[in-house]
Design a protein around this nucleic acid. Sequence first.
DNA 1: GCAGTTACGCTACGAGCCGTAGCGAAAGCC
DNA 2: GGCTTTCGCTACGGCTCGTAGCGTAACTGC
Lengths: 214, 214
Amino acid sequence: MVAGMQSRDTPPTRAGGRPRSTEADTAILEATRQALVDLGWTKLTLGDVATRAGVAKTTLYRRWAGKSELVVDAVAELFDELELPDRGSLAADIEGVVLQFAALLGRPETRTALMAVVAESTTDGPLRERIRTSIVERQKRLVLEGRERAQARGELPVEPDPETAGRTADLIFDVTAGAVVHRALVSAEPVDVEWAHRFTTLLLGGLAATTTAP
Amino acid sequence: MVAGMQSRDTPPTRAGGRPRSTEADTAILEATRQALVDLGWTKLTLGDVATRAGVAKTTLYRRWAGKSELVVDAVAELFDELELPDRGSLAADIEGVVLQFAALLGRPETRTALMAVVAESTTDGPLRERIRTSIVERQKRLVLEGRERAQARGELPVEPDPETAGRTADLIFDVTAGAVVHRALVSAEPVDVEWAHRFTTLLLGGLAATTTAP
DNA sequence: GCAGTTACGCTACGAGCCGTAGCGAAAGCC
DNA sequence: GGCTTTCGCTACGGCTCGTAGCGTAACTGC
């Protein structure tokens, strides 16, 4: 809910003058998402987005450096929906977040945009950083939150060394997010309740192995 | 090594006439990979590839429908390098294939191309099928081969029901490939020996859990 | 050797999008 | 009211796309 602080390009930051229209901001991001649904990543053009949003094309270029940055901000807002309600057990929490993430990847706008901007980021450092702070870190907090809760329940041991604990969290994050993305977008097969259950069993068994036998 | 059978667009298949130059084929695919290294996915243009390969632009359009199809064929050849030598144990086999896959994703041409074509495939059915047969299935065979070998060693039980066995293999595949891709491209952190070892421990522990407790 | 068929290199073209510049008008702060 | 910044609008050069048309090269079958 904190959402897009510092999401668009900062104006030269001098006081005075006409302020930027926040209505235009929301209209542009909404138009971007709709254009992603209608056209997909490649056929999306900034001119088209400007027309849909009812603003001039130049306004877009004043705020975003290019297509990638705009789309990152547009889809990042959708990741605010991800939350981790307490479902009573670690297994139920994992299944829940997997299905939530899968539902997000099922939407056509995220489907077509997420892999595209990641692909862009492989040759664009600042974009990678923008993705990391706007999207990736927002997901990773769910892992930390779930672990903390499971430790409070006594389902997971408290790892003494903070460095190895961090690496374990990173591993769980890459395995979970990676598996869901790969299943949904590469294998192109459904992430349903049954798959989520099988994955959760696998992950929990692996966690037991990693924490008992270093 | 079997490689790109039926990789390019089939000519109308009538006998007679000048045959297509196979030298041009290999030159084009090699030029495509080099262009990916130099320019990345977005800045790569078909005209530039044609110039690098020393062929006319029209020749490219006669064989491939577009940029995506060309790049899929160009990177698919690199996946032929993936093999699964017997390293003595299931754990060693998994670690080996993880590091091999990571090395492939470390190359700039696959780095920038793989996510991009997957993104394209979300709005292009035929392209998704091309990726599946040219790239994905080629990786999945490694999973099946590794499982068979582990069963022969007695490290894994033989699952009686072929359907659940297939689902388990699919799960392992999505988890492994997804985790490596996510670690390398999204988190943008190194897939080194230590990470591969931690991942293998996690996966093996999970396998024990899934096969003992259905 | 000759006709038939197909691929090749080359050139040229309309179309579309990019990203920017320049203008007058609007909306805030002092 | 003066200053500053944003806004909408128009116009532009530059690049890439994908295709068409042409003459030439390569290979097959009679």
